[in-house]
Amino acid sequence: MNIKLLLSDIYWVFWREIKKFLQQKARLMMVVIQPLIWLVLMGNSMSGLTRNPQAAQMLGTGNYLDFMTPGIMIMTALFGGVFGGTTIIWDRRTGYLNKMLAAPIYRAAIPLGKLLSIGLQTVLQALIIVIIALFLGVHFKTGIPGVIALLAIAGLFGIIMGGISLSLSSRIKSMETLMAVSNFLTMPLMFTSNAMFPTNAMPAWLKGIAMANPVSYAVQAMRTISTQGWIWHDILPALAALTGIMVVLVALAIRLFSKSVN
C-alpha cells in the first residue's frame, strides 16, 4: 500500500464532498437556522425550570441553555452524520460512484473521504452552535480550549454516525429505505439519552438505557467540559469509549463498502 496515494485519494473524495456541501445554499441556511430555533425555543420554554432550585441542581447549572448547548451540538452531529450514507446511494444512482471506481483509487478512500467530510461538516455546525450560544449568553467554563474539545467530540460523534450510515448504505440500495432505517435509529438514540433531560430526572429504567447510550457519553463529557471544568476522570473514559466505537465503525464501513464494490 502506498500511503501517499491513499491520502491523496482520500483528499480528493473529501474535496468533492466539501465543495458540494458549500454549494448548497439552502442546506447551509438550515445549518444556521436549525440550532438557532432549538436554542431560542428550548431556552425560552425551559428557562422556568432553572428558576426551580431543585431542577437547577439536577441540570448541574443555573442556566438551561448551558445545559442544553452540548445536547444540541450532539443532536446536530447525529442528524448530520446519519445521512452521510445517502451520498453513496446517490453516487451509485448518478453513476458517479462508477466514475470514481474506474479510476485507479483505493476503494477505502471513498468511505474515508466521505467520513472525513462528515466530521468537518459536524465541526462547522458545532462551531455555529457555539457562536449562537455565546450570543444567547451561554457560558463555556473552560474557555477556548474547552470549545475546541467540544468541537472535536462533536466531530468524532458525527463520524460515528456517518460510519453507521455508510455501513448501512453498502447493503441498502434505496434512498427511502436508508432514510427510514436512519430515522428508526436516530429517534430512540436521541430520546433515550441525556441530551435534553438530565438522567437524574429520568425513571430508573430509562436512566439505565440512557447511561448505556453512546450519545450520553458524548453529551456527558461535553457537558462536564462546558459547565464544570476539566474533570478528567469523567471525560477520559467517555472519550476512550467514543474513540473505540468510532474505530470499529469506520473499519466496518470500509469493509462493507469494499465488499459491495468487489
Binding site: 480528493w12 468533492r16 448548497q24
Partner: peptide
C-alpha cells in the same frame, strides 16, 4: 485502469461544480 478512460451512460458530471473543477477532481483521482 491506468490504460483506460471510462465514460458511463449516466452523464456522471457534478452539476454543482464548474466544468474546470469537475476536471480538477478527475485529475486528482488519476
Amino acid at each position: 485502469r491506468l490504460e483506460l478512460g471510462f465514460v458511463s451512460q449516466d452523464l456522471a458530471v457534478e452539476d454543482a461544480l464548474s466544468g474546470y473543477n469537475n476536471l480538477r477532481l478527475q485529475a486528482g483521482f488519476y
